[in-house]
């Protein structure tokens, strides 16, 4: 069983720029993943409007019946979210780590155009290593 089912990265305007699937259910249709990403972007924005206290930065954790969704928003508005097994801990650390990888291997890549889909080999390699490490740590717990 995988601890992480999938990872999405969306840019500040809600467009999906990275999607990777680690689960067993198979890859989602491209159109559907794009739609889900922009839906999440708007739900995130609406949740800020409904806050009873000022200073809300949007949904961090969504607990569904069969999965948990952890979301991290960077200061520039790029959102990273992972879909994991219910009750998985320490996802914030993984998301921060993925953000570091993004800054190191995507933003520092001179051929990468901002807000465009991510196609960076080094990012892919380091990301799968990070996910693998997380999975080993998960199995070890």
């Amino acid at each position: 069983m995988a601890a992480i089912y999938s990872l999405y990265i969306i840019n500040k305007s809600g467009g999906l720029i990275f999607y990777k699937d680690y689960g067993l259910a198979g890859r989602m249709d491209t159109n559907d993943s794009l739609r889900l990403a922009s839906l999440w972007h708007s739900m995130h924005a609406i949740s800020m409007q409904l806050s009873p206290i000022s200073g809300c930065t949007g949904i961090e954790l969504l607990e569904a019946d069969t999965f948990d969704l952890h979301c991290f928003q960077s200061l520039t508005g790029t959102k990273f979210f992972v879909v994991s097994e219910p009750g998985t801990q320490h996802m914030e650390h993984l998301l921060k780590h993925i953000y570091e990888l993004y800054t190191d291997y995507v933003l520092k890549n001179p051929f990468y155009e901002m807000e465009m889909p991510i196609r960076c080999e080094l990012f892919d390699i380091n990301l799968s290593q990070a996910i693998q490490k997380d999975r080993v740590a998960y199995l070890g717990r």
Partner: peptide
Amino acid sequence: GCSFHSFRTNTYKL
């Protein structure tokens, strides 16, 4: 379908 039972932001939990 799959529903949800809660979500959490930094200022509230629903």
